[in-house]
Structure formats: structure tokens, C-alpha cells
């Protein structure tokens, strides 16, 4: 085999090595998983702006429809929203929580929001400072209406449509 062929084979092999490296990098570029955090569009954009915090309301059956999002209205995460699906939402300081709070007044696993027969319920998981729905302390799983503030430590959450 000629010297030229050997050199071409040698350089071709190095090229093959880099083809693998670059195609792996290409795969990584399109390979995202986990959660994506995007900035909220500027206020005024229809439907996506931050509405003023709704005043606490009692049980208002007319207003009850399926909530779509969970919005943080007070606390260090103010403005953050989470899409609601079928899965339960664990709230607390522990990293495995769905909503991880940086709030010294909340417990590691503070409260849980879960869906039961089409209704979202809030349950306190034995937290130190308690969970409040409106003004009353949550003692047992209680249905949460849209717009009712749920207080966890210094953080206030509410369900939005």
C-alpha cells in the first residue's frame, strides 16, 4: 500500500474520532430534560401578565373551574408559576420537592397539593409553622378554591385558572 494511502487512512481515522465527538455534542445540544425556566413576558401581553393578587374569597362555587397554574404571590419566589397536571405537588425546603422554597419559616416537607376527583386539596405534612388556607389553619386535607391564598411559612401561593 502506498505511503499516500496510509497517510490518508491515518488522517481519516482521526477525522472519524472527531466525527464521533462532534455528533455526540450535536446530540447534547438538542437533548434537554428536566424543567425549563423562562422569563415571563412583559405585562400587557394578553393572558400572560401577572394579575393583581385576588382578594381572599370564601367558598365561591360559581367560580370553581379547573385551575391550570399554581402561582407564588408572596415570598422570595414571588412571581413563579407552575403548571398543574395530574401529579401531586410537594412544597417545602427539601430538594426533592416539586416547589423548593428558600424560606426559613417553612419545613423540609411542608405541605402537599393533590388532585382528588377533580378538586385540588391541600394537606399539611406535619410542618412546624403550619399551613394556612385563607385565615384558617389546615388540619386535614381541605379543598382549595381558585384565588384563595395558601400560606406556607412566608410564602403565599394561589391556584389560578
Amino acid at each position: 500500500m502506498s505511503e499516500l494511502t496510509l497517510t490518508l487512512l491515518r488522517l481519516g481515522y482521526l477525522a472519524l474520532l472527531w466525527i464521533l465527538v462532534l455528533s455526540v455534542v450535536g446530540v447534547l445540544r438538542s437533548d434537554l430534560f428536566g424543567t425549563r425556566v423562562t422569563r415571563r413576558p412583559a405585562p400587557g401581553t394578553p393572558g400572560r401578565g401577572i394579575p393583581a393578587p385576588a382578594p381572599p374569597r370564601g367558598r365561591d362555587t360559581e367560580d370553581r373551574k379547573t385551575p391550570r397554574t399554581l402561582v407564588v404571590t408572596e415570598g422570595s419566589l414571588k412571581g413563579t408559576s407552575l403548571a398543574l397536571g395530574q401529579a401531586a405537588i410537594l412544597i417545602g425546603r427539601a430538594p426533592e420537592c416539586t416547589l423548593v422554597l428558600e424560606d426559613d419559616y417553612s419545613s423540609n416537607r411542608h405541605a402537599r397539593l393533590f388532585l382528588d376527583a377533580g378538586t385540588w386539596l391541600v394537606e399539611d405534612l406535619g410542618s412546624t409553622n403550619g399551613t394556612y388556607l385563607g385565615r384558617s389553619k389546615v388540619e386535614s386535607p381541605t379543598p382549595v378554591d381558585i384565588g384563595t391564598p395558601v400560606r406556607v411559612g412566608r410564602t403565599v401561593l394561589e391556584l389560578r385558572r
Binding site: L16, L17, L20, S23, V37, T38, R39, R40
Partner: peptide
């Protein structure tokens, strides 16, 4: 002020198969 959404993930086993062929080519 942020919106947290889950990213749709795909299994991506076919991509792995293609890359495996290149890897075997290297060997």
C-alpha cells in the same frame, strides 16, 4: 419572575443506535 415548565423528553434510543454504529466503526 419566571415560569417553570417541564420539557418534553423523548426516549432517544434511535439516536443511541446511530452513535453506536459510529463507535463500532472507530473500534
Amino acid at each position: 419572575m419566571a415560569v417553570v415548565t417541564a420539557v418534553e423528553t423523548r426516549p432517544r434510543r434511535n439516536v443511541e443506535l446511530v452513535l453506536l454504529v459510529v463507535s463500532l466503526g472507530i473500534a
